[in-house]
C-alpha cells in the first residue's frame, strides 16, 4: 500500500473516531446539563418567554399577562400563611406608587385561598396593586412555583428577567422594578 493511501486511511480513522467520541460526549454533556438545571424551576429559566395567563383580581378586573407587553410586570406569588410574603407586601405597595407611572405593573397572585382571607388581608394592609387568586393553581403550575414567596420579573419584551425566591427588602424591590421598567 502506498504511503499516501495509508495517510488517507489514518486521517479517515481519526475523523471517524473523533466524530463518534464527540457525539457520545455531547449526548452525555446534554444529559448532565439537563439534570443539573432541572432542579428548582423545571421549565422556566431566565430569558424564557413568560407563560401567558389570565386571572381576575379582587375587583373583578381581568389581567392578561400579554396585555402588559411594553411594561415591566412584577409578578409576586404569595399566601397569607407565608410570613416573608406578608412582610414584603407593604414595601411592594410603596414602590408600586413610585414605579406605576414609569410603566411597572405589580400583580400579586395568591395561591388558592378563599376570597374572604385575601380580601381581609388586602383591606388590612391597604394594598394598592391588583391581587388575583389562582384558584386551581394553574398559573402556579405553569410557572412551576415551589417555595413562597417567588417573584417573577417580566421585562417589557415579555421575557423573564429574573426569578427571586425568598423575602425581598424594599431596596431589592426598588432595584428590581428599575430593572424591568421600560426605557
Amino acid at each position: 500500500m502506498s504511503t499516501e493511501k495509508k495517510r488517507n486511511k489514518k486521517k479517515n480513522r481519526t475523523i471517524m473516531r473523533s466524530v463518534i467520541l464527540l457525539l457520545l460526549v455531547a449526548a452525555i454533556g446534554y444529559t448532565i446539563y439537563n439534570s443539573v438545571t432541572a432542579d428548582e424551576v423545571e421549565v422556566l429559566k431566565v430569558g424564557d418567554p413568560a407563560p401567558d395567563f389570565t386571572l381576575t383580581d379582587l375587583d373583578g378586573e381581568t389581567h392578561k399577562l400579554s396585555d402588559y407587553k411594553g411594561q415591566g410586570v412584577f409578578l409576586n406569588f404569595w399566601g397569607t400563611w407565608c410570613e416573608p410574603c406578608i412582610k414584603e407586601m407593604p414595601a411592594m405597595a410603596n414602590q408600586y406608587e413610585v414605579y406605576e407611572d414609569q410603566g411597572v405593573q405589580v400583580l400579586a397572585v395568591n395561591i388558592a385561598q378563599s376570597n374572604f382571607e385575601v380580601e381581609t388581608f388586602a383591606r388590612q394592609y391597604g394594598l394598592n396593586f391588583p391581587i388575583a387568586i389562582d384558584r386551581d393553581k394553574s398559573v402556579m403550575t405553569a410557572y412551576n412555583i415551589r417555595p413562597l414567596p417567588t417573584t417573577m420579573l417580566v421585562n417589557p419584551q415579555g421575557e423573564i428577567q429574573r426569578i427571586v425566591t425568598g423575602e425581598m427588602t424594599e431596596q431589592d424591590i426598588a432595584g428590581f422594578m428599575e430593572e424591568i421598567k421600560p426605557e
Binding site: L24, I28, V36
Partner: peptide, 18 residues
C-alpha cells in the same frame, strides 16, 4: 442526578459502543 454518576454511566455507554 449527580453529574459524576451520570458521567460514569455515559462513560459506560461509550465503553460499550467502542
Amino acid at each position: 442526578n449527580s453529574f459524576w454518576f451520570i458521567g460514569l454511566v455515559g462513560m459506560l455507554a461509550i465503553s460499550l459502543i467502542i
